[in-house]
Structure formats: C-alpha cells, structure tokens
Design a binder for these strands. Structure first.
Lengths: 335, 335
DNA sequence: TTGTAGGCGTTATCAA
DNA sequence: TTGATAACGCCTACAA
C-alpha cells in the first residue's frame, strides 16, 4: 500500500542504499537529491518507523506513568513533558495506575514490553525493585515528584519541605499558634516531606506541636472533607489550617462551605496547587504553587539527555522551588 | 541483549517456527509446550513487538488527540479510553494540540506517521481534509465530542442541544424570563449545539430572545470572567445565566465573587461539567454533567471494533445523554 | 506436529 | 558517491 524505499529506488533508478543514506542525512549528488525528493513527493513516501525501529533498536517513544489521569497536577506535568519530547521527535505513551500499586507494576511492565526508549514515572508503591531491574538494562529512567529510597536514578523533586515551611511560617508570623495540618498518607514521599516542613518550622519557632492538630488524609477529596470537619469539631479548633495537596484542599473547602465557617475570620486557610480554585472560592485562597511546567520540562530533558548517552552527573537530583501565592484567606491576628 | 525466539529455539532444540506457533496459540506437543515455557522463563523471553509489528503491519497502538491537556473534561475521557484499550492489549499514544488548529494538523500527521492502528480525535479546526485522506487508507478513526461536517466516520457525541434545553428550561419553569447565556465560539461544534438548545427552548416557550443576553466567549476562563461582567453591567441584567462549558464557568464564578453578586438571590447560575467545582462554590452550583466515562468507553470500543474489521452500521453516530445536577444556585421566582 | 526458507522495510558494512 | 547484501526478530506458507 504505502510506498517504501524500494519504490523510491525504482522511481529514481538509484539503489535502496542510496535512498536510505539520503534519508539519514548522508551525502548524495545534488542531481540525485532532487530526483529523490521528487520521488518522495510523487509517491508520498514516509519512512516506516517500525522497520526502522527493528533495525535501530529504538522506538522513539517515551513511556510516562502517572498515578492518576484525573489530577490536574499530574496532567499538567505530562503536558509539559510531551511538549518537549515531541519537539525532539519522540512520542509519549501515557499510562496511569489509578493510585493502585499493583496496577503500577503492571503498567510499568507494559511500558517496558513496549520497548520504550525511556521512562518517566511518578511512583507510588514499592516499585523500586522493578525499577532497579530496568536500570540494570540501561534503559533511561526518571523519577518525578517522589523519590524512591534505595533507588539510584535521576529524580526531579519539588522542595516540599520548604514549601510547607514557608506556608506555615506565613501563618506563624501573622500570629497563629494553633495551626492544623491536613497531611497525606505515610507511604507517599511528598506527604512525608510536607509534614516535615510543618514540624521543622514549629521547632524553629519553639512552638510545641499539638498532635491532635495533625490530621492524616488520603490525598483525596473525601479525606480533606473529613479532616477539616474533625478539626473544627475539636474543643479548641485551630485558628488556621494548612492543607497539603490539591484534592484535600477541595474537600476541605467543601466542608468549610457546609459548616459555614467564615474564612479567614473563623479560620485561616492555606491550600495547595490550583490557581483557578484559589480564585473561585471566596475569599481567594492563599496557596502553595508548584512549578509544574518546569517539572515536566526538566524531566523530559533529563530523559533525552540520558538517551543521547550523556551520563554527566548521574544520578542527578533536582529540587525545584515552590511559591506561596498570597491571597485573602489568612487573617492577621496581630494587633 | 534480550532473548529472542532464536534463543528459545536453541534452548529447547526446537525450530523457530515451532516456537512462533506456540506463541501465537498454535498446537504443540504437550512435552514441547512445557519445554518452551521453561525456556521462556529461564531466558526471560519477551516477544519483540516491533519485529512482530513489521511483519503483521500492526503496532497495537491507538493515537488519541485532544485539544488540551489541562482540561479535566478531555483528560477524563482519555483516562477511560486508555482503560479499555489497555485491557485489549493496546497502548495509547496521547497528544494534545493546545487548541491550535495548525498544531492539530501537525500532531495528527505525527500520529499517522507513527503508524497507529487507529485514531481517536476530539477535533477542532478544519482538519476534515486530512481525516478524509486517512479514511481512504482505511485506518479506523473515531471522532469524539465534536462532529465534522462533510466527514463520514464514527462519531461519539453528547446530546448538547438537549443539555442546554433542559438547563434553560429548568430556569424558565422557575420563573426566569431574562436568561443570559455565555456561549462558546462559532467554530466549535459543541458551542453551536448548546446555543441551539437555548434558542429552541425559548421558541418552545414562546419567549423572545434578547440578543444582548447572548455573550460569546472563547471557552476559556478569561472569557467567562469577561462575559459575566458584561452581563451584570447591563442596564437590566439577567436574573439567571447559563454558562456552556467548564472553563467559562470558572471564569464566571470568579467574576461573581469579585462583584459580590449574591447567588441565587441576585443571579441564578447553571454551569457546566465539574462535580467538584459545583461543591466548592457557595452555594453549590447546579450544573450540566456530561457522561465522560461513557464517552471514553464508547470511543475506545468503537475503534477496537473497526480494527477487528467489524464494519457493521458504519458510520455510527452515538449521542449520549447529559444530566442536570440540581443544586442551590437557582432561585425559584414563582410565588 | 515440526522444520525450512523467504520476506516485512530499514540500516549498515564493505566493495566498487 | 553509489550499490549489493546481510542483518534486525518475527510470521507464515509450504514441505517434511
């Protein structure tokens, strides 16, 4: 059906080898070059990437594995990854694992079997074993958003600890002393780091942590909702709350609305991640903003660099800065 | 590096052909079967999909092209598409075109060149020509969310007209007579259909349309914001507004917040698409809900069906129903 | 049931 | 600069 190199060869009277050389940027007589180009146009010839892949052992494809498709944080990162990759001639095979660590392994293997040239993954479970296996086979692999203990490979992270530190410090310097936190689960890297920031800033300001103000959610909407309710039902509720991811922020706002909590008079709130959300709630929410574009770009560029064989400063560990976007959801209690 | 059929053949003492037959479900002596399975395990053999693809002319890959990655409506559909495809052994190459009709063509060609076995696309621009080209080549192609004039192929749509009809009717039956609409651009299929529903229900209720209540946005946050402001700055503002997509709904809410418009007392509001948003605004928003899961499933199944060669009732046109989720953002003006 | 051999569309080596 | 030819790993008649 589709034209092959053979056809181009016939059309031009040249050999297959010559056409192939032309296609791969080799030198060809000016005269022949024109002829070949004419043939390619006339026959609407396109290189068969599959055949080429068989020969070169490259698929020009990067596998990207994320926890969940319905999560703007992840998809925004993916979007930026894809931007960079496609500019470099690579395509993206995208999978999510629906936050299921079994599925995570399955999909990871799926990508490996697809013979992608590299993998970018936002990991969750103990997939470290699988990953080490692949690293041995020398397939470039980049971890994003979450580090994996005991796995030596390129990792792109956000400075979660300081993100938390700055957010909570913002509250402390405005006179808050009872600050609740809605934190994520223990098995997720970012949750742990974000909690650490909360703890550290308390230490630095010589404030004792009231454990009952630390509520553990599951990083989903429902648990944000539940945790906020728990906080407000305490005998002495906090004057401020810091919520450590986007979904839980949504849930918390739902609870705030239902309980008719006045923000920031009854409660000051700092949430996470979504600029739009920050503006559609009333009053506009102070939030921690992660550099999603950058994360994607760095991840993609890292994988490309490794594919090209550039192993300089491997394994690299990049920590990107967050920003605290200040709006009107925090009350200044001083004076 | 990786084991090939040849290696398995050597290991077992059988021929390549026999191994291949085993791999493709052919009959092999029980004895040999065991031997082969042992070899596969021992050598950690995996079929080379690329080589197989070269032979079978299949990549077991579906291309999915959406307007924008940062849009929950699209990504949710993609998520469901991917679910179905992976269960059937297919992987998904995902691209977005950032709402840019030039990029749309480019990425479409990119997918074609990748020799995907089928394409699912949420189209925007006049990509009809390209698509017809592909249809001639018999590559299965499914249109989602938006029909394309003059292009005969499988199409999965939402019943936009009735979605609008029901939403606006909901307002009318509660006594609203001046109902604003924030509609999308002329060149987008869903915008046109949603506007039609607005017009038709006015006709059916013998209500004349005040053209100044029809505001045209660009389906983005900014234009929702702008249009709502325009509506509220009218000499006689509407008592209700219907906003025809998710992003514009966000923008409209931002404007509502900033202007301190009381919902539903000053203005009744019906928005679009996002369940979470509906609950984090106050009061909870009445919205049109689209069946995103279904859309994705139907799209994926359709493409798979065509790939299998089942061309029954081609081209198929599926219209899925929306639902009006009623919350507290609409005021009953009667009595 | 099993094996032989040719071919899928490229790339790459080595002569010419 | 060009061309003949052997791979790449798999599938598939066809023959044994």
């Amino acid at each position: 059906m589709a034209a092959t190199i053979k056809d181009v060869a016939k059309y031009t009277g040249l050999s297959i080898a010559t056409i192939s050389k032309y296609l791969n940027g080799g030198n060809v007589l000016e005269e022949n070059r024109k002829l070949i180009e004419e043939a390619i146009r006339a026959l609407d010839f396109k290189v068969n990437e599959i055949a080429r892949g068989l020969k070169t052992n490259k698929t020009m494809t990067i596998g990207v594995l994320i926890p969940d498709f319905n999560n703007l944080f992840f998809t925004t990162i993916v979007s930026n990854i894809e931007n960079v990759l496609i500019k470099n001639g690579y395509s993206t095979i995208l999978c999510d694992y629906k936050n299921d660590i079994e599925l995570e392994k399955e999909k990871f293997n799926f990508l490996v079997n697809k013979q992608v040239d590299g993998i970018i993954i936002i990991p969750q479970g103990d997939i470290g074993g699988y990953i080490k296996e692949q690293l041995k086979k020398n397939i470039p692999l980049v971890l994003v958003d979450r580090a994996l203990e005991d796995v030596e490979c390129d990792t792109i992270l956000v400075d979660n600890m300081n993100a938390s530190y700055n957010a909570v410090e913002h509250l402390i310097t405005r006179g808050h002393r009872r600050i609740g936190i809605i934190r994520g689960p223990d098995n997720i890297f970012t949750s742990i780091e974000r909690l650490k920031g909360y703890i550290r800033v308390h230490k630095d300001y010589s404030m004792k942590i009231d454990e009952s103000l630390v509520k553990k959610g599951d990083n989903d909407v429902e648990s944000g909702y539940r945790c906020l309710n728990e906080l407000m039902e305490m005998d002495v509720p906090p004057t401020a709350v810091y919520i450590t991811n986007y979904e839980m922020t949504l849930g918390a706002i739902m609870a705030i609305n239902e309980r008719n909590v006045k923000v920031p008079d009854d409660l000051s709130v700092i949430g996470f991640d979504n600029l739009h959300i920050a503006r559609i709630v009333k009053p506009p929410l102070t939030i921690v903003v992660q550099p999603m574009e950058q994360i994607g770009e760095v991840a993609a560029n890292t994988v490309l660099k490794r594919i090209k064989g550039d192993m300089s400063n491997y394994p690299s560990m990049v920590r990107l800065k967050t920003e605290l976007m200040i709006n009107q959801s925090v009350k200044d209690l001083r004076g």
